[in-house]
Simulated scan of single mutants.
Amino acid sequence: MVDTVTRTGRDETEEERADRMWGELIQEIRVAQTGVQILFGFLLTVVFTPKYANLAHTDQVIYIVTVVLGSCATGALIGPVSLHRLVSGRRIKPQAVRIASRLTFVGLVLLLTTMTAALLLVLRVATHDSWVPWLVTAVVAWYLLCWFVLPLWTRRRYTTQ
């Protein structure tokens, strides 16, 4: 009986590819996790400052939404680590990599919304100007360009499959 081995352009088996992709994914998650955890940590302290009680109701709602989004982003970006730990040794690494990749993408979207809400809150409190939503929109457009548009354009432009 002959085992057929599926090879990619890198001349690697499915398992080797899953191992490589897992390593790459974990490195990517480290960057995003650090950012979201620092942001989330700072957000958790705001409610304990004297200024919080003086915030307008709208700003308090934005703060609560921001904290919840940050918590969800943290969960999604830590999720792949838990997934790996709970399925390790079960011979399902290719499937685990796909699931972890999706969790990471959800985490990035949640991180984007957390950063958007945090920026909106900070600029509203700092300036009270009517141009704040426009500035936040411009920054979000920049995030979307860097995080999604450029990578998707690159994938479409240079992928041969």
Results as ranks from 00 to 15, higher is better:
R85A: 11
R85L: 11
L86W: 13
L86H: 13
V87N: 07
S88L: 10
S88C: 04
S88M: 08
G89L: 05
G89I: 06
R90T: 14
R90I: 02
R91Y: 14
R91K: 15
I92W: 05
I92Q: 15
K93C: 05
K93S: 13
K93W: 04
A96M: 10
V97C: 02
V97S: 00
R98Q: 10
I99Q: 01
A100N: 01
A100K: 00
A100F: 01
S101Q: 03
S101G: 15
S101N: 12
R102Y: 08
R102S: 06
L103R: 00
L103N: 01
T104R: 08
T104W: 06
V106R: 08
G107P: 02
G107S: 07
G107M: 03
G107C: 01
V109Y: 06
L110V: 07
L110D: 03
L111R: 01
L111W: 06
T113L: 15
M115H: 11
M115D: 05
A117E: 02
A118C: 09
L119R: 07
L119N: 10
L119D: 06
L120N: 10
L120P: 00
L120K: 08
V122H: 07
V122M: 09
R124G: 04
R124Q: 14
R124F: 07
R124A: 05
V125S: 05
V125W: 04
V125G: 02
V125R: 11
V125A: 10
A126F: 07
T127F: 12
T127P: 00
T127W: 08
T127R: 06
T127Q: 03
H128C: 00
H128R: 11
D129N: 06
W131R: 09
V132I: 09
P133N: 05
P133Q: 04
P133L: 03
P133W: 03
W134K: 07
L135E: 02
L135I: 13
L135T: 09
V136P: 00
V136K: 01
V136L: 05
V136Y: 04
T137Y: 07
T137E: 01
A138I: 13
V139L: 08
V140W: 09
V140Q: 06
V140A: 13
A141G: 15
Y143T: 01
Y143I: 08
L144N: 09
L144C: 15
L144E: 08
